[in-house]
């Protein structure tokens, strides 16, 4: 899952980027409104986390322009403004959620997960694919009673494929949603992650649920 964080306060931005990355999300972060808008319009993000008071263009204007261009990306506003009017303005402006600073990180993570579920049309946080269970809340993959030891990147790959169960996902799309803007594109890297995930699942006796669609990409299917 690829997220964009637009927050002008450096320490908070860095902390969010680091924390979300550690949780397995691909995170782009910027402190400038115009740059944020540029990212939001150019890249296909799974979630935007926007501050309101930003240099250049404020968060509400970024939101307005993104929505005007027809992007349905979920948007979480993260603002120090805690008044009801501010929240109403944000939500009416097209945001999907509003969180007031300072916030508890677990709450932020829960909201991020909820918004990502909504985007993929999966209301249930637990996705079952045969004997494999992808628990998006725990950010863990279980096979029977065993938990598969996955790196955050491997988990993100499995979660993305599980969210789009049955759909062929191109390498480019996977790359776009699993790696941030700074990552250098390499199909080999992606193939290596897929191979590792398959190996770990197989080690626990799971069925082969990730198919390779030659010339296109990958697909997760229920056995």
């Amino acid at each position: 899952m690829r997220l964009l964080v637009v927050e002008d306060y450096g320490p908070l931005r860095d902390s969010l980027q680091r924390g979300l990355s550690r949780a397995g999300y691909a995170v782009d972060a910027t402190g400038d409104g115009e740059e944020g808008l540029w990212y939001a319009e150019r890249e296909d993000y799974d979630l935007l986390i926007l501050d309101i008071m930003l240099p250049g263009i404020d968060g509400l204007e970024i939101l307005r322009r993104v929505r005007a261009k027809g992007h349905n990306v979920p948007v979480l506003i993260l603002s120090a403004r805690d008044q009801v009017d501010d929240q109403v303005a944000g939500l009416d402006g097209g945001a999907d959620d509003y969180l007031t600073k300072p916030f508890a990180v677990p709450e932020l993570m829960a909201r991020v997960r909820a918004l990502l579920r909504r985007r993929s049309g999966q209301a249930n946080p637990v996705i079952e694919v045969g004997s494999v269970v992808v628990d998006t809340n725990a950010r863990a993959v279980r096979c029977g009673t065993e938990t598969v030891a996955l790196t955050p990147r491997e988990y993100a790959l499995l979660e993305y494929l599980a969210r789009h169960l049955g759909a062929v996902i191109s390498r480019q799309e996977l790359w776009d949603h699993l790696y941030d803007f700074a990552a250098e594109a390499s199909s080999n890297t992606l193939d290596q992650w897929v191979a590792r995930a398959r190996r770990k699942l197989r080690a626990l006796g799971a069925e082969s649920i990730i198919e390779t669609v030659h010339g296109h990409g990958y697909r997760m299917v229920a056995p």
């Binding site: 306060y9 902390s15 680091r18 120090a80």
Partner: peptide
């Protein structure tokens, strides 16, 4: 104005 720095401190510490 303290909200944002506090959010920064909290998130750093919570992560």
């Amino acid at each position: 104005e303290l909200r944002t720095p506090l959010a920064g401190i909290r998130s750093q510490l919570e992560f």
